[in-house]
Design a protein around this nucleic acid. Sequence first.
DNA 1: GCGCCGACTCTAATTACCTCA
DNA 2: TTTGAGGTAATTAGAGTCGGC
Length: 258
Amino acid sequence: MAQEEVHDAGLALGLSLGGGGRGGGDGSSSAHRGNNSSSRLTLWEAAPSLEPSLTLSMPEDTTMTSTASGGVSSMSVGGAVKRERAEEADLGEMVSSTAAGAEEDRFKEHSTLNPKQKVALAKQLNLRPRQVEVWFQNRRARTKLKQTEVDCEFLKRCCETLTEENRRLQRELQELRAIKFAPPPPPNNASQHPGTPSSAAAPPAPFYMQLPAATLTICPSCERLGGTAATAAGKVDPDRPKAATHHFFNPFTHSAAC
DNA sequence: GCGCCGACTCTAATTACCTCA
DNA sequence: TTTGAGGTAATTAGAGTCGGC
């Protein structure tokens, strides 16, 4: 059938996005190999700051035709775009560089598109809505992948920090135990004021004041003593909700949770 | 109100290709 | 010139949502 031949020619000569690659395992992708002599317009050339991720490749003598059956373009990429509908197939002119970066800008605003936005953006870029949709899908995937890598790295650093903090606290605990169970020093009456009964001496400092300074943590939000020291010293505000009485450093938010 | 169905959209995985070091 | 890594568009499968019946 002649129309199919035109369609196949469109596939062979046709439209390539990104690195020119087409995938999906449809077995038709080798046709445009070695077609680098064709005039390729990189949409991102007009916007050098943008990542070159969207290109158009089209032979100079290629003409746009539409199939008689419902307007699906002969440039249908891969020849297997199943969900194309007639209203999505209004290609118009394929080459345009004035809208370079429009997808990127739109993606920065919203990572998803509603159908109206998709059609409008496709029109602006002279692409098929399906291509815009795919671009956003892949972009979301890449963004998520990158974010996952960043999160992974961050968690790794948190783990290292917490491990180091744990070691430090263990050392402090050992030192405190050593102090607690050390034999008491011999009584030294000379240092006592005469006439001052020992039972009337100033009460011992609160436990948290005996701790090394490094052990005391202050919640930056509520400026209360954090950790068990505050609890032991009775510093917890009874008016505060129970869940809010914990003062600990949250490595994931780099802030104390109150 | 409930269930079914089709259309639609999304994510995840995958493929095929290009570019570049 | 070859090769492998990285990047990209596109496809596929499966799942979820939504509106109509």
